[in-house]
């Protein structure tokens, strides 16, 4: 299956990646697996650590699946299917 991943902010700056089409052999996988895959890339190693995050802990990123915060779904266990879009956005907290 193919999953479109959009990367923003400091992650984009560190990795040089703004959009990535991830090709995965399975028909569906948990979001945690997507993060592990992305975390292999240079500049995205923070996502590998994020993949080990337990649900309920504060995160440095907003994770959106099809525009919806995954913590309104099943967190990092949310099932990602072919053709879906994952957006990873480090929200700016300063004012």
């Amino acid at each position: 299956m193919a999953v479109e991943c959009k990367i923003f902010g400091t992650l984009r700056l560190a990795s040089g990646i703004d959009r990535l089409l991830l090709d995965i052999p399975e028909k569906s996988v948990p979001l945690r697996r997507i993060l592990e895959e992305l975390g292999q890339r240079k500049g995205l190693d923070e996502l590998k650590k994020l993949a080990q995050n337990r649900n309920g802990e504060s995160l440095p990123f907003i994770l959106l699946l099809q525009g919806k915060n995954v913590f309104d779904l099943d967190g990092l266990e949310t099932v990602v299917k072919d053709g879906q879009r994952v957006s990873i956005f480090p929200p700016s907290g300063g004012g």
Partner: peptide
């Protein structure tokens, strides 16, 4: 919000069911 060279803007219209705390849920 602002950080380094980045920022974001989001409007929550009156009556909107989608709230700021939904969009930024789980953020520190």
């Amino acid at each position: 919000g602002i950080s380094r060279l980045f920022g974001q803007v989001l409007s929550i219209a009156p009556g909107s069911k989608m709230r700021l705390r939904d969009v930024f849920k789980a953020v520190d």
